[in-house]
């Protein structure tokens, strides 16, 4: 369990949320992070820094860093072969969006839902449903890459 945030706390750190759609969709937890959540996992932290072998996961083929190319490779191996031209919802596709501040290291990853909105795990706290621009700002930077794969 993490500290329960209310909307005011989130909007202070992500001011764009105030003017865009968003909704808190889970209780806080430290059991998974944004990368895991974007990959559809909610019971492991996806990171190369190990806490314990069953708690943290990092793909064996991935380099041990947070570089954009490494994150891209991770999602490539999950079937996200294509770079999407935009963040609009496409019926037969699933999309993930990668945020960065410096265009070198990732800061955050979000996953698109069938509604067209996006879902994100905010660090150790809540999941939220949001628009991509809602999380852009000082904390996560901007969306620098959107990848897509064919839906199953």
């Amino acid at each position: 369990m993490g500290t329960v945030l209310n909307s005011c706390d989130i909007e202070i750190r992500f001011p764009n949320l105030k003017d865009t759609h968003y909704e808190i969709t889970s209780t806080p937890t430290y059991k998974y992070n944004c990368l895991a959540w974007a990959a559809g996992v909610n019971n492991k932290i996806w990171d190369y820094v190990s806490l314990h072998k069953n708690i943290v996961y990092w793909p064996r083929t991935a380099q041990k860093n947070y570089r954009l190319e490494t994150i891209r490779k991770i999602f490539y191996d999950l079937g996200y072969f294509e770079e999407a031209r935009n963040d609009l919802f496409e019926c037969d596709y699933e999309k993930v969006a990668i945020y960065s501040i410096d265009h070198v290291y990732y800061t955050h990853v979000a996953r698109q839902e069938k509604t067209g909105y996006w879902t994100s795990k905010l660090g150790k706290d809540h999941d939220i449903e949001h628009t991509l621009s809602g999380l852009e700002g000082i904390e996560y930077g901007k969306v620098v890459l959107v990848l897509k794969r064919k839906s199953c």
């Binding site: 500290t3 750190r13 990171d47 820094v49 905010l122 660090g123």
Partner: peptide, 15 residues
């Protein structure tokens, strides 16, 4: 520490 790393998903940054 809790405040600064609240939204970070990167363990290296957290510790």
């Amino acid at each position: 520490w809790e405040e600064e790393t609240r939204y970070s998903s990167k363990m290296r940054d957290i510790i």
